[in-house]
Design a protein around this nucleic acid. Sequence first.
DNA 1: CTGAAAGCGCTTACAG
DNA 2: CTGAAAGCGCTTACAG
Lengths: 338, 338
Amino acid sequence: MKATSFDIAYRAGVSQSTVSRALRNSPLVNEETRRKIQAIAKELNYKVDKNARNLRSQQSNTLALLLFEDTDVDESQINPFFLSMLGSITRACSNAGYDLLVSFQEMDNDWHAEYADSNKADGIILLGYGDYTDYREKLVQLHQQGTHFVRFGAEVSDMPVTSIGGDNVSGGKQLTEHLISQGCKTMAFIGTISAAAPEFLGRYQGHKEALEAAALTIDSNLQINAISTEQAGYQATKELLKRGVAFDGLFGASDLIAIGAMRALQEAGLQVPGDVAVVGYDDIPMARVSKPALTTVKQDTLLAGQLLVDNLLAMIAGSKPKTILMPVQLISRESSVK
Amino acid sequence: MKATSFDIAYRAGVSQSTVSRALRNSPLVNEETRRKIQAIAKELNYKVDKNARNLRSQQSNTLALLLFEDTDVDESQINPFFLSMLGSITRACSNAGYDLLVSFQEMDNDWHAEYADSNKADGIILLGYGDYTDYREKLVQLHQQGTHFVRFGAEVSDMPVTSIGGDNVSGGKQLTEHLISQGCKTMAFIGTISAAAPEFLGRYQGHKEALEAAALTIDSNLQINAISTEQAGYQATKELLKRGVAFDGLFGASDLIAIGAMRALQEAGLQVPGDVAVVGYDDIPMARVSKPALTTVKQDTLLAGQLLVDNLLAMIAGSKPKTILMPVQLISRESSVK
DNA sequence: CTGAAAGCGCTTACAG
DNA sequence: CTGAAAGCGCTTACAG
């Protein structure tokens, strides 16, 4: 069957302890002995048993990635924005010699206890926008338990948590200034404005700041709540059109919302960007492909994934939680250029 | 610190063995004793240590998902088609009480030894199209080692491996028949035709069968190799246009290829579908959004993910490998309807 | 530099 | 139904 360190010890004529040391590159081993042992290990196709190692050393060398979804979203669809972070997270983990456990969670599950307490993972990465109110409570519990975790998203007030997120206020501002520069005077905003959705709230705040700076009016009739799906964006925009308040610019709080909004506008016979200029947020792959291609704000997901892992590892090693605000980048495409 | 089964035993006034049994719902425990133990466990926030359990019981209760990429693809991008399976795979795993380890691999790495030998995972799920030649060799090794694994994709000839895949021949045939029904007479095929890419090969075969059945000619000048990226589809189509051979239908071997192809056609001043009808393959989210929306073949990724997990678990439990060919579904959209 | 020994926290025959 | 004991395969003080 599977070779153990005792099998190697026997063949090498040394003790099992020495095998263990040699394989872990301990300096406490004669160079020649080490080479001999490593040769035998290779020959026998030996791999250290992770369960034994982890049990003994009391660490799992594993990180857990938990993805959250709004429960009202189609089960099969994950927000493509978070998916795009998966690549850099897995890569950063494997570079650090860590394994990555991935799981989708409903907000209301018992996930906050599951991973760290069972020694499955040394730390947790949290990804996903959901109802912040539920979420916050679990975060508090995680923190009280002393679990190491990091999350992508807006800063969590009055709690020492490592949050890495894009600068939503700046992104919202840049997009709105861009719309203004294209001549837009009356702008709609589609996306939930609530403390439960701090990302969207930040974008909306930037949006307002830009409007105020340009002395443009903010009409609450031109804002409609929507979660981050194409369908929600479509419905909200149809609802908006029903209200009969004219607008020449539309800010979708996410790309999915904006893409749904464009569909609703086009179905209503409006030209994008001619009649209404549209912008989104996230720069998901779809944004390049939609017609017209969507102007948006890009968050550097590659960097974010790397930072998430690096900071989690640092926390496990004992450093303090911190907040990182990543710069965002405006990507101008056809949907907003009049 | 963290509670152990001994802590619970002490408080409950029973032996540690009884605690273990009670928590695993063994019938060998008095109902009242069990309730008492479970209450204490809950109170202490006790979770079974996975490493200890796994070491003792010699199974990891974990599956590994390995995603492969062509090395020439942008590092940050994963084929959205495979990503869409991630959701159903994680869900199927957690329903079965298994954890899922996710990792991206380069084809040339040592992944085939990494997981099973170290007892990290009881079985492996392989996802991704890559160069089949390299791939096949590793599969043989995995099989020889007795590792349990399943893969999504075309059947592997003369090797007992569980392969679950869509019916590429049927899909290729359906799409081509659809193009013929729209009046196309001369069709281009963009996608690598090689034994190293059996998925595309199957689609091409179905394509040819449909053309032959309709007595249409197959011009090798109208086929160009391309891997599954938008960029490759774009480049190949530009190359095709340079050849100056006229065509009125274009079959992209994947949606990404087809979307790149549409861009090249449109840039060349051709109307899709007016001048050239275009079809793709996979039904990735982008296909709905592109303009014109892309006609394609949908593979049931939800079902596929579930089957992959179910069959891997069955193999671990001792059942024989098998091949499953899943039906595919034509989705007709604007890009092909003249 | 090396070996003997303890022990990580469980599960599971074995005996009662 | 319950307990005492062995043992999964390692790592790591401890002693030399």
